[in-house]
Deep mutational scan, measured.
Amino acid sequence: SIEEEIKKAEEAKEKGKTFIHGDFVATTEELLDELLKRLRKKL
Score class of each variant (00 low, 15 high):
S1K: 09
I2L: 13
I2V: 11
I2M: 06
E3W: 14
E3K: 09
E3G: 07
E3V: 11
E3D: 07
E4R: 09
E4M: 09
E4N: 08
E5S: 09
E5M: 15
I6N: 01
I6A: 02
I6D: 05
K7T: 08
K8I: 05
K8R: 13
A9C: 14
A9Q: 02
A9D: 02
A9E: 02
E10Y: 08
E10V: 08
E10C: 14
E11C: 15
E11P: 00
E11M: 06
E11H: 05
E11N: 04
A12E: 04
A12T: 02
A12R: 01
A12I: 04
A12F: 01
K13W: 08
K13M: 07
K13A: 04
K13R: 12
K13Q: 05
E14K: 13
E14Q: 10
E14R: 14
K15T: 11
K15S: 12
K15N: 11
G16T: 04
K17L: 15
K17G: 13
K17N: 13
T18Q: 11
T18F: 12
T18G: 10
T18V: 13
T18R: 01
T18Y: 12
T18D: 06
T18L: 10
F19W: 09
I20Y: 08
I20G: 02
H21W: 15
H21N: 03
H21C: 15
G22V: 07
G22K: 04
G22N: 06
G22D: 05
G22H: 09
G22R: 04
D23H: 09
D23Q: 10
D23P: 06
D23G: 11
D23F: 13
D23Y: 11
F24M: 06
F24S: 03
F24Q: 02
V25S: 06
V25C: 01
A26M: 08
A26Q: 02
A26H: 02
A26F: 10
T27H: 14
T27L: 10
T27C: 10
T28C: 12
E29C: 15
E29G: 12
E29R: 14
E30I: 06
E30C: 15
L31N: 03
L31A: 11
L32F: 14
D33F: 08
D33Q: 05
D33V: 09
E34S: 04
E34M: 08
E34K: 10
E34C: 00
L35Y: 03
L35W: 05
L35D: 00
L35R: 00
L36G: 00
L36K: 00
K37M: 12
K37I: 12
K37L: 13
K37T: 11
R38W: 15
L39P: 01
L39K: 00
L39I: 09
R40Y: 15
R40P: 05
R40W: 13
R40A: 08
K41E: 14
K41N: 11
K41A: 13
K41S: 07
K42F: 13
K42Q: 14
K42D: 11
L43S: 01
L43M: 05
L43I: 04
